[in-house]
Design a protein around this nucleic acid. Structure first.
Length: 773
RNA sequence: GGGCUCGUAGUCUAGCUCGGUUAUGACGUCGCCCUUACACGGCGAAGAUCCGGUGUUCAAAUCACCGCGGGCCCA
């Protein structure tokens, strides 16, 4: 019989046609049933956050979760979304058009951002599709759509009514030249010359002074404590004593803290609100009460006393003079200091407390711990990231951002009495351009309002993804049947943010956990072991790799190379060499395609042996799949297909399958077994390599997609796997003997078959053309 | 600076829970071989002080402690 398959190797270009076929047949369209398995797919961000080979690998594996669940009989809801809110696109847009956000009309700036996102998103969707993701692309959502933002605002209004939102000050990076807060990503550092002033602080009730060096003497008025290293013997007897701050004459305590460097300055450091980020951390950690020393105009506030109204630099000069006049300076050094500057204006930033909205979270920590413990993590070790984070939360969640491209905070303020007005849910509000829905202020009756111009932290949007995709508050039937969702797949680095905030938000809104399982993936590293990211420039673009090697090759590489939850190195050479396995599978199939498909036959012991190995394989694969660990089935399938099935069994059964020296029943037993094994392998492999398995399945076995099949179950056949080693060793011995004696493989040779292989005697004689005595 | 996490050949990995042959398999490298499913193949070889040290033990990749290194998150 002529083989049905004639090409000598798997051609990745066939993937396009298969994709089209799936699309035409609406193979993965979701229809709501009573029981559904919902995947809370991470919506990728089209700029800034990395989209590279590691991310492509991540999404491939998420698709394997979907396909595995489908082949286990679940009705899978696999939504696709794109996360489009946040800072990175703003920075990208500013750079691309050489403009500044604050100096551009807001509507115009938003349009430019949208345009940039659209371009980047199109490319991203193309990658996801060509990877073979079986998600719901027709209905893919965007977190900046009117519907999504309306939903974010609704959930905020709900929280507002529940009284868990409040205002408090929070230190912001502030650029007083442009009058804006700036994000950490917009800070650059430069070494600038400055004066390190050694000031005399008096130890209270003792005739002693200690020297404290600072580059920011103008912040003396905001000094709340002095820290010394607990190992610093010079100060160990002063810990807990009070110091008198020069000029202000206020008293502060000496506190031990490891962040004080013994060798820097005098070893004692004054902590002020706020000289640098370390001060911010210390104020929080030591629960100090902040003093607002520098105002939004970039000048010293009334807290600075005589220095009020001066710019920090002028105040510094004046203060140094006054200190010197009062004989409170020991010495002044000229040093070079690493100073944080605004990327735009190039002036040193100040850290200024400003009012921000907070969402209460500290009182939910115990509840979060309980929910966290109820969620199954894959791998379990990464649950620790969440639990450690819960242990270390010390402040509530600041949710407002002074940015443009995000969901607007739906609040207006009365122009007269500043009373906030929060509208009813049901509409997408843009207070920076919409007029206030209220006629007049509820408190004072005034009719003029000013809209809030801030937006939410992007995690406010993305943390409700499981509620959005399950149509919470929008379609009760749909929601009931899909929530809590089945699984949250996501990357390790955002457990503390996305995973935690989702838990928090969903619990507050639904009093339930958002999913019963969380699947945590590691990061893609480059060949040197560094995390891949666009900003570092070491990211490998996945598209050319997929186009060259094919999605299945890429997917099999991902499954077989990446241990669950661990970071993984990406090497194009390894991806390329993975193709060989698909080639092997292809050629096994090509060989089998020359034999008819038959329903049964008389099984010999060789057949029973490979079927028992197959049973073991099914068991291992299902075990791996049940833990969403694709490394296990991928490596087990490769090992079995290549080294057991192709290298041993096919060679053993080949002569019998051709019917040379065997009767028809025996021949049929071989052909039946060959097809049984191959069709099982294809089904087991289908979640990992959906294209090649589909192609081979349709060519050999069925008119219907392999992705409609169920994963094979074990048949509990008699276990003969203890024979495997003896079989492999004997065959290897014969092949080596022939090689040593310069014999061709079909030449006859005299080698005795060991007694324990007697049951395979007939097959082995035919296989090796053994001379028998 | 703090926390977490990992550390087995050039690379990925099995073994570690519960200590016991020569440390598993794959990719890559090198050598030989076109044998009719497959040269994207077959056969074979080299390649690992199991991160280091100390301890427990007759015996440690495996257990304990102390380091070192990578990575991430937070600051």
């Amino acid at each position: 019989m002529e083989p049905k398959i004639t090409e000598k190797a798997w051609e990745p270009k066939l993937e396009d046609a298969i994709l089209k076929k799936w699309d035409d047949e609406k193979l993965y369209d979701f229809k709501l049933q009573d029981e559904n398995y919902t995947i809370d797919t991470p919506p990728p961000y089209p700029s800034g956050r990395p989209w590279h080979i590691g991310a492509a690998s991540h999404y491939s594996q998420i698709d394997m979760i979907a396909r595995t669940a489908r082949m286990n009989g679940k009705n899978v809801y696999f939504p696709i979304g794109i996360d489009r809110n946040g800072l990175p696109v703003e920075l990208y847009t500013e750079k691309k058009h050489n403009i500044r956000m604050r100096e551009t009309e807001r509507g115009e700036f938003l349009n430019l951002c949208k345009g940039a996102l659209d371009d980047l998103e199109a490319e991203m969707i193309q990658i996801m599709k060509s990877l073979g993701l079986s998600g719901d692309f027709k209905n893919y959502y965007r977190t900046d759509s009117e519907e999504y933002r309306k939903f974010t605002q609704e959930t905020f209004i709900d929280l507002w009514k529940k009284g868990v939102i409040y205002l408090a000050t929070r230190p912001n990076n502030y650029d007083w030249v442009s009058g804006t807060t700036i994000a950490d990503a917009e800070i650059v550092y430069d070494d600038l010359p400055t004066k390190l002033v050694y000031m005399k602080f008096i130890v209270k009730d003792e005739q002693k002074e200690i020297i404290i060096a600072s580059t920011r003497p103008e912040l003396l008025c905001a000094c709340k404590t002095v820290i010394v290293n607990p190992d610093d013997e010079r100060y160990s007897n002063l810990i807990g004593k009070n110091l008198v701050v020069p000029l202000t004459n206020k008293e502060v305590k000496i506190t031990p803290h490891h962040s004080a460097k013994i060798e820097f300055g005098s070893g004692a450091v004054m902590v002020c609100s706020y000289g640098d980020q370390n001060d911010v951390a210390l104020f929080r950690e030591l629960q100090l009460e902040e003093v607002i020393a520098i105002g939004l105009d970039g000048r010293m506030t009334e807290a600075a006393g005589d220095y009020q109204g001066l710019k920090p630099k002028q105040a510094r000069t004046k203060i140094i003079e006054d200190l010197e006049n009062a004989n409170l300076v020991e010495k002044i050094e000229d040093i070079s200091h690493r100073t944080p500057l605004s990327e735009r204006s190039k002036i040193p930033i100040e850290i200024v407390p400003m009012e921000e909205y907070y969402l209460k979270q500290k009182d939910s920590i115990e509840k979060m711990k309980r929910l966290g413990s109820e969620i199954e993590f894959y791998p379990n070790m990464h649950k620790q990231i969440l639990m450690n984070w819960l242990e270390s939360i010390s402040i509530d969640w600041p949710i407002s951002r002074r940015r443009f491209y995000g969901t607007e905070i739906p609040i207006w303020y009365c122009n007269e009495c500043s009373e906030p007005f929060v509208p009813e849910p049901g509409k997408y509000y843009r207070p920076w351009k919409d007029s206030c829905p209220a006629e007049k202020c509820e408190k004072c009756g005034n009719t003029e309002f000013t809209g809030e111009d801030r937006t939410f932290d992007t995690w406010m949007d993305s943390s409700i993804s499981p509620l959005f995709v399950t149509k919470f508050n929008r379609d009760d039937e749909f929601f009931k049947k899909t929530y809590p969702t089945g699984i949250r797949p996501q990357a390790k680095d955002i457990v503390r943010t996305w995973l935690y905030y989702t838990l928090l938000r969903c619990e507050k809104l639904t009093e339930q956990k958002p999913w019963s399982e969380a699947w945590i993936m590691g990061y893609g590293l480059d060949e040197k072991g560094m995390k891949m990211s666009k900003s570092k420039g070491n990211a490998i673009d996945p598209l050319p790799v997929i186009q060259k090697s094919g999605a299945d090759t890429f997917r099999f590489w991902s499954a077989s190379e990446i241990n669950q939850g661990y970071d993984f190195r990406c090497s194009e050479q390894k991806i390329e060499s993975t193709k060989k396995f698909l080639s092997k599978l292809w050629n096994v199939s090509r060989f089998l395609s020359s034999f008819p498909i038959i329903e049964s036959g008389k099984l010999t012991d060789s057949d029973k042996w490979i079927l028992s190995e197959l049973d073991k394989l099914i068991s291992v694969c299902n075990e791996g799949y049940s833990k969403y660990n694709f490394f296990i089935p991928a490596t087990a399938l490769r090992e079995f297909t290549w080294n057991i099935f192709a290298a041993q069994y096919i060679e053993i059964a080949k002569a019998r399958a051709y019917g040379i020296g065997f009767d028809d029943d025996e021949r049929d037993g071989a052909i039946f077994t060959l097809h049984k094994v191959l069709s099982t392998i294809l089904k087991l492999l289908a979640p990992i390599t959906p294209f090649i398995t589909e192609h081979l399945w349709l060519t050999l076995y069925s008119k219907n997609s392999i992705h409609k099949e169920q994963l094979p179950k074990i048949e509990n056949v008699e276990d003969m796997t203890n024979m495997t080693q003896a079989i492999v060793e004997f065959n290897s011995k014969v092949w080596n003997e022939k090689k040593k004696n310069n014999l061709s493989l079909k030449d006859s040779i005299r080698i005795e078959i060991p007694d324990n292989l007697n049951q395979f005697k007939k097959d082995l004689i035919a296989m090796h053309n053994l001379e028998t005595s």
